[in-house]
Amino acid sequence: MKYLFNLPDFPDSSFVMQITFWTGKQILFKNDALVEQSGEKGKPFLIPDGNGKVVKAYPKPSLPDFAPILIINGEKHRIVAKLPWYQLVLALLPLLLLYGGALGGGAGAIAAMLNMQVFRNEDSAAVKYFKVIGITVAAFAVYFLLVTAIYSVIA
């Protein structure tokens, strides 16, 4: 996933954060230049300012969202806007599959992450909702097909 954002501490800069879907690894770019990430506790990004100093930006999870927030000098900065409550509910609906154990939880988590990503893309509202409903239905269908296949092999 790729998120474009600005930070008030850096008004003339644009930022891009890439987050690997499978591992959650975060990579930050400032004006298309890779920003170094420290190995110290909290793994802050070391963002150079215009005065030769370095500002530490700590990435923190922002549940239930999958996009992190950055904490700079004790202030929280969202890299993406919060989804409205109704979009959040619809996006996280596949997590009901958690009641189906590991298979359901896996299918539900992947579908929820995809739904959140779809709601943040540039499509029209109708297309976004159509995709999210399709992903949710597909997650339930995949879960039930897997359970049926496993049950038929075991029984």
Rank of each mutant, 00 (worst) to 15 (best):
V147F: 10
E36W: 08
D12F: 14
K131C: 15
M116H: 15
S38H: 08
I71A: 13
Q26W: 00
M1P: 09
T136H: 06
A81K: 06
S38W: 10
F140M: 12
F10L: 04
Q117S: 07
P59C: 12
M17T: 08
L63C: 01
S13I: 04
L92S: 02
K60R: 11
L95F: 15
K41Y: 15
K30T: 10
I133R: 08
P44F: 02
H77V: 03
D65K: 09
G50F: 12
K56I: 00
F10Q: 01
E75H: 07
G52R: 06
P68F: 13
L4A: 13
Q18G: 10
L146I: 02
I79G: 02
V153D: 07
L93A: 12
F144H: 06
A109W: 13
V55S: 04
A126R: 12
G105A: 08
L7P: 05
N115G: 09
Y86L: 15
V55Y: 06
L46H: 13
F29N: 00
I110T: 07
I110A: 11
P61I: 10
D12R: 14
L4V: 09
E40A: 12
I154T: 05
F130V: 10
Y86Q: 12
L46I: 01
N51R: 05
L103A: 12
M113W: 03
A138H: 05
G52I: 01
L28D: 06
P64V: 08
